[in-house]
């Protein structure tokens, strides 16, 4: 069964006078273990698509089945739980909590999953070890380099055994060398743990890491290879 099954979704933003179609008639299927790169110019709808995939936003029309569950009609709290259990996010700007140590940042999804503090500690350590930050548990974000911060974010995405990692321009704020390291880490996670990775990027050489490429233009998929 497809992990992500999107059928003819549209997203319309109502800006008062005008209605903007950010997405229109998008259908696609993403299977477990895929590594998909999503490309397209700004305003093409790829971010909106990612938000819908990540259950941060809901489509105006159309159907989105996540692991067989129809997202439509779920409450805020149901969506929050879905995000907590199935989806890990990686952002361009890392989005770590400031003044909060690396390990506490990684623990965050586990807190909302209602896990005990000892369990949280253990899982967060394991996740940080996996991304190569074994000696940085108690560093604050501002004591870490950009690459390290992104690794913390990846650890946070991993920690609750998410099936999907949604990465929105994960290398946008990083230099080339660090970008390569981060991408290789994602590739490893995809290949070794079978985590589905969906990546939004501008850069063609980053997109090359994906085994499948989806190109957006003006709210529709124009290329899917």
């Amino acid at each position: 069964m497809a992990l992500i099954d999107i059928r003819n979704i549209c997203k319309t933003y109502d800006l008062g006078d005008v209605k903007v179609n950010a997405l229109c008639g998008v259908s696609t299927v993403i299977d477990k273990g895929e590594f998909v790169a999503i490309m397209g110019p700004s305003g093409s709808g790829k971010s909106t698509f990612m938000n819908i995939l990540g259950c941060l936003d809901t489509p105006t029309t159309g159907k989105y089945l996540l692991d067989g569950v129809d997202v439509e009609g779920l409450s805020r709290d149901d969506l929050a739980e879905l995000r907590n259990k199935k989806i890990g996010f990686i952002f361009q700007g890392f989005n770590l909590l400031s003044r909060t140590s690396a390990i506490e940042n990684v623990e965050l999804p586990l807190i909302y999953a209602g896990m005990s503090s000892r369990q949280r500690r253990d899982l967060a350590r394991q996740a940080l070890d996996r991304v190569g930050l074994a000696n940085r548990y108690n560093h604050l974000p501002n004591q870490l380099s950009g690459g390290q911060q992104q690794r913390v974010a990846i650890a946070r995405a991993l920690v609750n055994n998410a099936e999907i990692i949604l990465a929105d321009e994960p290398t946008g704020n990083l230099d080339t060398k660090t970008s390569v390291e981060i991408m290789e880490l994602l590739v490893t996670l995809n290949q070794q743990s079978g985590i589905t990775i969906i990546l939004v990027t501008h850069e063609p050489d980053i997109a090359l890491y994906g085994r499948r490429k989806i190109r957006f233009l003006d709210g529709s998929i124009v290329e899917d290879v």
């Binding site: 941060l56 929050a80 739980e81 907590n84 989005n95 909302y112 999953a113």
Partner: peptide
């Protein structure tokens, strides 16, 4: 606001 967004993204519910 951003912190709240992050918390929500990783699974914080309304009452959390």
């Amino acid at each position: 606001t951003r912190e709240i967004g992050i918390r929500m993204a990783v699974g914080a519910k309304t009452w959390d």
